[in-house]
Design a protein around this nucleic acid. Structure first.
Length: 309
DNA sequence: AACATCCACAACCGCATCCGA
DNA sequence: CTCGGATGCGGTTGTGGATGT
């Protein structure tokens, strides 16, 4: 069934591809004088050899006078990430919160910049949770345990370290990155304890666990993501040292009580923080921004591989 | 300098939804 | 209620410029 009222011949004669300045002018002049009315009828009335759809797209995505041009601000990017975590790929809905920006522009920004940015931070851009597809994490506990020993005696570079650029020199940025891996791994490798045993903060703590573990949506998660602000606060809870500390406390308190913990077994050595809170970059900004900036100049999988191997 | 590759962005395509007859 | 045209939406592609080899 043909949905178009144009004949095959008419359709095939229509121009496609980039718009010329002359075409733009015809379209702008016509809409300013008559409004767009029916997009289907517009091309003929405006003297354009284009389909109505092409005209509508050109107008809404490029020629509209209220379109904001230029780079997206940090704030705009943050809004997009935040709304995407709630709305998903609903570009037009996201665009409504950013006056002057089009859905197409936001979609392009997401696909070219923001998606990569989140991946660099170890966050899955679809679920907005930490990535769990890093098979490379398999060797992490031993690596971190060794590294912790190394830090305890910084003059004693072990033979296995070889010429690794990661270990020499040992600078605060490298330590901070290791801290990130350390935090992710500890939560990934531990089941979440029974809710009744957790006390008043259990919900926040489960957020952290769910978030980092990438498990299916729990009821607390649904509640947590019900609004834009709460969604952000979850994001900020990610890697907040105090919350990780809380979680660690709970986990430690349960060591040796395997049955109650659903078979929890602390095979993995519990690692002390590799760096203190004060050493974390940009301690005045949110955790999210701080880690984002920290990871900003790095590749994705290649970068993680380099850390772990 | 020439060529290959990457990247960003505009534009297209096809499906979904809306809405009036 | 059903049908079909108009419009909206999101995924994908094409293209030109930038960068690397």
């Amino acid at each position: 069934m043909r949905r178009s009222s144009l004949s095959m011949e008419e359709e095939s004669n229509l121009k496609k591809g980039p718009w010329t300045p002359e075409e733009d002018k015809k379209l702008i002049d016509h809409i300013q004088e008559h409004g767009h009315g029916s997009w289907r009828a517009l091309p003929k009335l405006a003297g354009l050899n284009r389909c109505g759809k092409s005209c509508r797209l050109r107008w809404t995505n490029y020629l509209r006078p209220d379109i904001k041009r230029g780079q997206f601000s940090q704030e705009e990017e943050q809004i997009i990430i935040n709304l995407h975590s709630i709305l998903g790929n609903k570009w037009s809905a996201i665009a409504q919160s950013l006056p002057g920006r089009t859905d197409n522009e936001i979609k392009n920004l997401w696909n070219t910049h923001l998606k990569k940015k989140l991946l660099q931070m170890g966050i899955d851009p679809v679920t907005h949770r930490p990535r769990t597809d890093l098979n490379l994490l398999a060797n992490l506990p031993h690596f971190l345990a060794n590294f912790t020993n190394l830090l305890a005696n910084t003059n004693n570079i072990p033979p296995w370290a070889g010429e690794s650029s990661l270990l020499r020199p040992v600078d605060p940025i490298h330590l901070a990155k290791l801290q990130l891996l350390n935090n992710i791994f500890q939560v990934l490798s531990s089941p979440f304890p029974n809710m009744e045993t957790l006390g008043p903060n259990f919900r926040e703590q489960q957020h952290l666990y769910d978030y980092i573990n990438g498990s299916q949506m729990s009821s607390s998660h649904l509640a947590g993501f019900s609004g834009q602000e709460e969604g952000l606060s979850n994001l900020e809870a990610f890697l907040q040292p105090s919350l990780v500390g809380d979680y660690q406390e709970i986990k430690d308190s349960k060591v040796g009580n395997d049955e109650e913990m659903g078979g929890y077994n602390c095979d993995i050595p519990v690692l002390p923080p590799l760096i203190s809170d004060e050493q974390c970059p940009n301690s005045s900004s949110t955790s999210f921004e701080g880690w984002g900036e920290l990871m900003d100049d790095q590749g994705t999988d290649t970068y993680w591989r380099q850390i772990i191997e």
